[in-house]
Design a protein around this nucleic acid. Structure first.
Length: 104
DNA sequence: AGCGTGACGAACT
DNA sequence: TAGTTCGCCACGC
């Protein structure tokens, strides 16, 4: 069993709809606890797809950030594009519009 | 029980 | 504009 913080992060990430993305800081904020960095640490240890669609979590700036899963960051980009999320120059196109925020 | 390590973010040089 | 520094905080050793 992982720490409860990590479990909560997974729980939220699972709720991100296909074709939408969220930011590390958004998740940390929704939990009223931790930090974007802590969320990153949690996702790094996540089981990955299809259990947890961790590729839908990006930097607040709209840039991809990191990815430890198969294919590394390029793999993350492919997964997003496959869902209809356009990625341009390492950035999510129209990020603010497809940005999904977790329920408080 | 303490220390080092990041899939962050913002400020600073 | 690019590279560095600092604050952040859960987790593994």
């Amino acid at each position: 069993m992982r720490g409860s913080f990590t479990e909560k992060v997974f729980n939220i990430v699972k709720q991100i709809p296909e074709g939408r993305v969220s930011a590390y800081s958004d998740i940390a904020c929704a939990l009223s606890r931790g930090s974007a960095r802590a969320v990153g640490s949690a996702l790094r240890r996540s089981p990955g797809m299809p259990e947890v669609p961790c590729h839908r979590v990006v930097l607040k700036s709209g840039r991809l950030g990191g990815f430890s899963g198969p294919g590394g960051v390029p793999g993350k980009k492919l997964l997003l594009e496959r869902e209809g999320v356009r990625v341009y120059s390492g950035r999510v196109a129209e990020f603010e519009q497809i940005r999904w925020k977790p329920a408080p």
